[in-house]
């Protein structure tokens, strides 16, 4: 897995805000667009691109994109 690619894929799930400055350390819930639909989009992207199923708890306990990346990495390698 590649963190830069993951950040771009993550950022693609946002339609209304600028994501040019998104990095691994971006707190992805701290913006006006974060909602249940954004969460679902992220989960669907991870499912499709990495064949990994994130749970609501995975998303709830994560703050940064890096947190989600680490969970996905663990599941991919688990």
């Amino acid at each position: 897995m590649n963190i830069e690619k993951f950040v771009r894929e993550f950022a693609d799930q946002y339609d209304d805000i600028s994501t040019e400055n998104f990095t691994a350390e971006t707190k992805f819930k701290e913006n006006d667009e974060w909602s249940s639909m954004t969460a679902l989009s992220v989960i669907a992207m991870v499912d499709e691109s990495y064949s990994v199923r994130l749970t609501g708890d995975d998303v709830r306990k994560s703050t940064t994109i890096q947190d989600i990346y680490d969970i996905v990495s663990l599941k991919v390698n688990g």
């Binding site: 819930k29 909602s35 249940s36 639909m37 954004t38 969460a39 679902l40 609501g56």
Partner: peptide, 12 residues
């Protein structure tokens, strides 16, 4: 429709 500020999985 869902009230703003709900847990992100209420919609789901």
């Amino acid at each position: 429709l869902i009230k703003p500020g709900c847990d992100e999985f209420v919609g789901l």
